[in-house]
Structures are given as structure tokens and as C-alpha cells.
Design a protein around this nucleic acid. Structure first.
Lengths: 129, 129
DNA sequence: CTTGACTGCTTGATAAACTTAGCAAATGAT
DNA sequence: ATCATTTGCTAAGTTTATCAAGCAGTCAAG
């Protein structure tokens, strides 16, 4: 036994989640503002990522879900609008390789962890352009 | 009093809809407030029924949906959060999980690093099974 | 070094959601 | 009649989301 506390569903906050996705996609705050047609201002997005806002309206979340190509329900859940009673589908016996991260294989927790790690990686290296 | 709009009887405002349900169920404003554990105050519900509020937050709507035993999505639709499309399906019926990574431009090194990290993650938790 | 275009981030203001306290009109019991 | 309770409702205040504007830092030329 290596870990006394199996971190179960250590869901990151909505802000961290949003920040990770954006960093992963290498988009600036203003690029996101532009991409969603001004529905979310860059200033507001910054506050969102720093957890300054408690309950952003679904409009905002929907726009971000589209821009980031993540499920709307995930953002709604992380914003506390939907209870997290949904059991994460336990797919036992997934052992296949991971070809270019098809993500069918990733659990939500794994996806979050990888996003975070990727964000970390890229924050260390300068962008190459 | 109630002017019968012959055109679209279904185009009821959220307020009218809520008032209708409550009257039908013979509940007082304060009874509703109690039934949803104080999530919606009686005063606020009155304003809601009179269309004084444009976009109540989903918390409120969810609580009311439970108390009134009506589908949450109906209230969300009437509040203008969801478009009134009969089938919320978009193009491309199977859209199972989100390709957070799939659409991203991973460099080979990043991919390798992520795979390694994923392996590490799974060796930690997936060891038992 | 200076200029300029970026970046993320903060602040001051505004509008809207939401609550607290209370009102007037019923109803009912004494 | 008076008192008590309950009804729906609202005016006034508090809280919060949201934005426009601007600030400090970075990086690339000029």
C-alpha cells in the first residue's frame, strides 16, 4: 500500500479545469473571447480561471464548452449546477494501447490529470512558432 | 384578465407556467419555500410568477422542478437557457466522449511524455485489478 | 533603449438576481 | 367586535455576475 488516501474523484475546480484546457489548446484569453463571439470577455475568463466567480451563468458555460469542445454537462457539473451523483462509467478491462490519445480510453480523472500535466509541460517550454 | 391567446397556447411564460402549476397543486408560496428547503423564498417565487425576473439561476429552477415534479429541462427551456428544439442532438449522432486531446496538436515528445505519465498513473491505482 | 504588440490580470462600475422585512386583504376563532 | 394566522405581494436593500478600461510584464524588432 503506497497511498493512505486514494484520491477519489479529486475533481479540480472549474477554474483549474478551464485554465488547463485553455493552456493545453494554447489559446490566449482574448482568443477565447473572440472564438466565442464575445460571449465571454477575457477579463471574466481570467476571473473564472482563478475561481473568483461562484456561479457563472449557463450561457457562459455553454459558449466555453463549444469553444473548448468539452461536454457542456461537465462544466455544469463543475460549476455545481448538477449533482455529481452520476457514476463514472467503470469500464473494466480496458487494456488496449493508447494510439494518439483517442481518449475513449481515458477516465475523467485521467483526463484531468493528463491535462494538468500537459499544461505544466507547456508552461515550462516556450512556445515554438 | 386572462386573454386567450389563440395563436400559441404553448407559449406560456415561465412565470405563468410556474403559477399554473402551483395553483393546480394548491400550494401556497410559503409551502413551496418550505418544500424546497428554503432554496426559493416565497417573495422570490412571487416575483418569478409575475415575470419580474428574467433569468433565474438553474439552482432555483432545479429546486422548483423537484418540488413540482416537472422536468428540469422544461423549466430551463422556458427560462430561455435551452433552445426549444425538440431533439437536442447535433450533427453526428455518436459523439461519445470528448476529444479533448484528439483535436490537439501534440508533439511526439509530448505524446510520449503523456503516455509515460499515464502509465505511471495507472500503475499507481490500477494495480489491484 | 524605445516602441509596439502581445500576454495575463485587476479594478471600478452597472445591472440583475435574490433576500429580508413588511404590507393589506382575506379568513377564522373567540 | 378583536385577535391571530395565512394569503399574495412589493419596496428596499444586499449580493453577485459581468464588462470596459486600464495596468504591469514579456518578447521582438527598429
Amino acid at each position: 500500500m503506497n497511498s493512505p488516501h486514494p484520491d477519489k474523484s479529486r475533481a479540480q475546480s472549474l477554474g483549474q479545469y478551464l485554465a488547463n484546457i485553455r493552456t493545453t489548446k494554447r489559446m490566449s484569453l482574448r482568443e477565447v473571447e473572440d472564438a466565442c463571439d464575445g460571449v465571454v470577455s477575457n477579463a471574466y475568463l481570467s476571473q473564472l480561471e482563478h475561481d473568483k466567480i461562484n456561479k457563472p451563468s449557463p450561457n457562459i458555460l455553454h459558449a466555453l464548452a463549444e469553444v473548448y469542445a468539452v461536454p457542456y454537462s461537465t462544466l455544469m457539473t463543475k460549476a455545481g449546477y448538477i449533482a455529481e451523483t452520476q457514476s463514472p462509467k467503470k469500464k473494466s478491462g480496458r487494456h488496449a494501447q493508447v494510439p494518439t490519445f483517442a481518449t475513449d480510453d481515458l477516465t475523467p480523472e485521467e483526463e484531468e490529470a493528463l491535462l494538468e500535466y500537459l499544461a505544466f509541460l507547456r508552461s515550462r517550454k516556450g512556445g515554438s512558432k
